[in-house]
Structures are given as C-alpha cells and as structure tokens.
Design a binder for these strands. Sequence first.
DNA 1: AAGAGCCACAACCGCCTGCAG
DNA 2: GCTGCAGGCGGTTGTGGCTCT
Length: 553
Amino acid sequence: MYRVKSESDCEMMLQDQMDSPLADDGSSGGGSPHRGSGPPLKKGPWTSAEDAILVDYVKKHGEGNWNAVQKNTGLFRCGKSCRLRWANHLRPNLKKGAFTPEEERLIIQLHAKMGNKWARMAAHLPGRTDNEIKNYWNTRIKRCQRAGLPIYPASVCNQSSSEDQQISGDFNCGENISNDLLSGNSLYLPDFTSDNFIANTEALSYAPQLSAVSISNLLGQSFASKNCSFMDQVDQSGMLKQSGCVLPALSDTVDGVLSSVDQFSNDSEKLKQALGFDYLNEANASSKTIAPFGVTLSGSHAFLNGIFSASRPINGPLKMELPSLQDTESDPNSWLKYTLAPAMQPTELVDPYLHSPIATPSVKSESASPRNSGLLEELLHEAQALRSGKNQLPSVRSSSSSAGTPCETTTVVSPEFDLCQEYWDEHHSSFLNDCAPFSGYSFTESTPPVSAASPDIFQLSKISPAQSPSMGSGEQAVEPKHDTAGSPHPENLRPDALFSGNTADPSSFNDAIAILLGNDMNAEPKPVLGDGIAFGSSSWSNMPHACEISEFK
DNA sequence: AAGAGCCACAACCGCCTGCAG
DNA sequence: GCTGCAGGCGGTTGTGGCTCT
C-alpha cells in the first residue's frame, strides 16, 4: 500500500490544511493521520472526484502554483502530487495508449543520445509524458535483459555514430558544449525529426550490447575530477589540448597489460582484436594515432550513457549519476565491473574508431557471454574462451559487419581523425612537455588525490618512465602485493589492483587473471563471468568501497 | 480454479535547481 | 550571499491485471 510519508515536501505545505471532505475518502490507501496533529495526507490513486476538482481548478487558474490547489479547492493532495496528476493524466492533448512503433523508435534513439533524460525526451514526443517514457524504457530494459537482447537497435547505433562525428566536427561551440560533451551531458540536442530518424532507422536488428559505455564517463569524470585542469583546456576546435599527452601513456599501459595477457593467453593478437585494442599497436607504431576527446567523447549516450547518465558538467563538482540500467542480478563480485571500468577506460578515450556504441569491442560468443559485458569481462571471457579453445571468437574489427553483429560499423578513420592526427603531429611534442605532470600521472595512491574519490579508483595503472617519457623518476612503481606464500595479496584480487601494479610483470597479472578466472588455470572455466557480472548493468548498492566514486562533489 | 510470475502503469520519494525575499 | 519555497526531474516502489502452470 501507499505509504504515508512522515515528512516530505508535501506535508510541509499542508501544515495549515484543515479537514477536507476528500481527504479521507479512503479510496485506496487513503490518508492517515500525519504526525499526530497534522492533517491526513491523501495518497494513493486519484479518484475521479479529485480529478474533477483538479481539472476545474486548472481551468480557472491555470497551471502552476500547485500548492495553492490544496488551499483553494480543499483537495487534499500535495502540490507535487497535483502537478504530477495534471501533467501525466489530466492535461489536454495527452496521447493515451501504447506507443506507436515510430514513437518507440524515437524513444530508443533519443535515449541513445540523451540517456535517462525523460523530460527532455518527452519534449520530442508530443502528448507523451516523461513518466510514460520512463516506464516504457524501464520495461524495455527488463525485457531486453531477459531476452538477452541489446537495448539499442543497430540503426540507433549507426545514427549515434554518424551524429557523434558530426558533433565532433562541429565541436567549436565553446566551453559549455565542450564540457558537456566531455561529460557525456548532451546539451547538444540533435534534431530528431521523425523523418530524419526513421530514414536512418531500419528493422530492429539488434546491436551488441554497449559493452563499454560504462567506462567513458568514469574516466572522463575521473580525469576531470583530478583538477588537472586539462579538461578545461579545450580549444575552439574542440580538441583537448592536453589530453593527448596522457593518452599515449595510457595506450602504453593498456598495451602493457595486454602484453601480459599475451603471455597469459599466448594469443595476444586475438585477444587484442577481440577487445578492440589492436589499434593500440598501431598507435604505438606511429606514436600519433591519438584522437582528441572530442572525437570519442561526443554526446552520444548510446556511447557514453547507455549505462551512465552523466548530467553534470565536469568542471564543477562532480557527481557520478547512477547507471540507468539497474542490474537486478546483483552479484557479490559485481565490484569487478566498477573497478575495472575506469581502468580500462582510456582505451575508449583514445580509440579513434570508437565513434559509436557498436564500435565498442564486443565479443560475440555462443557461450554464455555476458551480454552487458565490459572490457574486462570480455577480456576474461575471451581469455577463458581462448584457453578452453572452445570458441574461436571472431575479431571484432574484422567481423563487425558479420551477421552476428547487426550494428555494422566500418573502421574507417574519420576526417576528424585525420585532423586529430595532424594536430597530434604538430603538437605532440609540446603536449608531452605541457603534460609532463600528467603523463606520469598514474592514478596511484602515491599521487595525492585531488578529489574526494577513493584513491583506489585511480590505481589505474603505473606508467613506467619508459612508457611515459616525461614521468618523473621519483615515483616508484607499485609492486603488486604478495603474501609470503607468493599468492597474490587479497588486495590484488581487486581489478584496480590488477591494473595498478607493474604491468610489465606478467606474473602478477597472470596471477590476478588466474584468480579472476577461478584461480585454477587448468580447471574448466568457472562461471566467473556469469550473470552476476554484467558490466553494462549495475547494482550500485553492492558497490564496494573501491567503487564508491559517487562522492565526487 | 488457484497460485505464481510477469508486466504495465501510477504514484511516491528524494534531490536538485531557479528564484524571490 | 543566504534561506526558503515552488517546481522539476529521475529513480523507485506499489498495485492490479493478465498469462501461464
């Protein structure tokens, strides 16, 4: 039954409310005495009489000043409730009934761009309310999760991809937009006219789940939260002047990690391809294939916000919004997905190919590959698959247009990327100089945390001086902790620890992988990556302290 | 027929923001 | 600048209907 809140916004405004004939009609849930002397507060479903009163009032006085409704009509509902009732059910021009297919597609498309911005989405759907859209989406998510289907159709991914590039190409609108894009807060609102959308919307073939969407915001905001100021240095072309300096190092780090994986799996190339890291080799070879943030961190929520709904500019106090996709399949191990995501995020940031969700590496497997997988999960899954030899997983890059991957993407380097490359060619040396403090910034505990975030988050990697040319020599690489028996210290079981140590040490990495895989490399793969670990979804209530990064502000 | 489970929906709750005093 | 209020927004929960076993 509906509760009677003991203290709420509504009740505070009902202190002077006297008895009402409607206050206690006890329709369903009814009102109940409120804190003794206070008037009862009617809650629960609205009756037709209440509706009539509210409609009459609005006809006479117009919308707004909802708290006056109670005073003027005797309707014993709080102003908020009146407003909601009017907005969601009583106001004219409301479209009732199920969503049309066009509306559904539009919702999907809008969500891909906006995330859980229901009110903004509702603005694009005349006659529909944010609540309707929200309910529809939540239902859809549940349905997709049950069915093991991705949330975003391929066409939406493509749409997002193209528009991302457009955004990055037009990325000259000043700091506000830049920051917003960087934070994943899409103030940039593309014109989702129905024609435009439908023209780009085909049959609901499904894209792979947005496996890495949880990553970008975390890192983007994590970076920003470090007050390194490089986030502020977005020039008029939308390029992040200093971003490039860190990215090579991160690329190196990821590559170093993968080198360890290489030894671990003896099949690094496959693994890297499966993970979408293969470009990192190219990056290393050329030392310049670094995309500015504007390329990858565009406003697509399909990319940035399939999971997270970042809505705060990164300049200000940061607050990680909770993921929009609730994981009802919570798992004690679910911390994996949160700790690892930041660690893996750089790959997304630097990935010149990742213009859309579909470019996110996705391991399609006949096995029980987690649908909402993240990079680590895919890594582990891939490692398992490789080890077991049961699955010959196709290269994501080479098979992205295969039948199993409806979201077709071509790994065509965009013009923006060419520009970025030129930009990097021209400025990378100065970048390295300018970013000397940051290029060696390895998110270790030795680095004084600037934000209130748990430093664990930033145990991202230890970038050795060799990997990071400008890193100071004073910093000591953090060795993975091992107990005397040689087994990894429990702390190292955490994925952040996994990536925090000397990544050039394959043994520690292997140890961690082994543990993550069940600590027995010779045993059959254990369902470590079962349903309990769904990177794309989350149950934040189960977040371990290492993942408690919500308190950035 | 009865119970369980699923589903869509309505409504509530807490937090945030903008604004006026 | 601070405070309180009104409104808005997004997340969550409760309810009732429907379907399946």
